[in-house]
Design a protein around this nucleic acid. Structure first.
Length: 216
DNA sequence: TACATGATGCCCT
DNA sequence: GGGCATCATGTAG
């Protein structure tokens, strides 16, 4: 019964929570397969959900752009830990970025969530972003961009860093609702100054919520 | 203890 | 299309 109960909970957000094994692979593979999945935040009285449409892989080894490249520190420890945990990083004095750790315990690697398409809790997201939903002609400013996405979901380092994203009971998780991605596009990463030439950015082709310059 | 730097977004042209 | 705000973190001294 315990297993059945867990399964029921795992499907409670209209999808199946991705298991730890999903993240225990090369970040490039994880990145590609994360597209189309749903990021879920359970607030006290609201459910926030958005479909992931853009991610970036960070390899840790042989990847100068990765935070884990220079070795393990107190800040990036999550990237070196077990797969499936949230790594939240404060950047430029203003913004948080949400990542998920990949590869086994002891091996660094991760995926940065860059943009998503809002599904549920749009009013909550707008409030978190400091805008009026009714005043928006375009929903893209809500979750198109790493900092925006994190802000819309109320993600902070203090609250979410180190959180287990594979725990269905967690208030932050990622689920598979069965959506099939039409076409995946691979491009160069953006917003970084090192190893910019590596094709480690993955987007859903043609999706309106993909950030930055349109590619492909 | 001080300093340089950055996986960004906003606002102005 | 380009400049700027703003601060935690890491490294050097």
């Amino acid at each position: 019964m315990a297993a059945a109960g867990a399964r029921t909970r795992a499907k409670s957000a209209a999808g199946v929570t991705l298991p730890r094994e999903f993240y225990d692979r090369d970040p490039r593979r994880v990145s590609r397969e994360l597209l189309g999945k749903v990021l879920v935040r359970r607030e006290a009285k609201a459910l926030l959900a958005a479909r992931i449409v853009e991610v970036e892989a960070y390899l840790g080894k042989n990847d100068p752009a990765a935070h884990s490249f220079a070795g393990r520190t107190a800040r990036n420890a999550v990237l070196f830990g077990p797969p499936g945990f949230a790594y939240v990083y404060f950047i430029y004095g203003n913004h948080y970025c949400l990542n998920v750790s990949c590869l086994p315990d002891g091996v660094a690697g991760g995926v940065l969530f860059r943009a998503a398409e809002p599904l549920f809790g749009l009013a909550e997201m707008a409030r978190a972003r400091g805008v009026f939903l009714n005043g928006l002609h375009d929903l893209r400013p809500l979750t198109s961009g790493p900092g925006r996405l994190a802000e819309a979901f109320g993600i902070t380092r203090e609250r979410d860093n180190g959180k287990d994203l594979t725990d269905p009971d967690s208030d932050l998780s990622i689920v598979d609702d069965g959506y099939k991605v039409p076409r995946v596009l691979t491009t160069m990463r953006i917003g970084i100054t090192k190893a910019v030439e590596l094709p480690l950015r993955y987007v859903i082709a043609g999706n309106r919520f993909v950030s930055g310059p349109r590619a492909g």
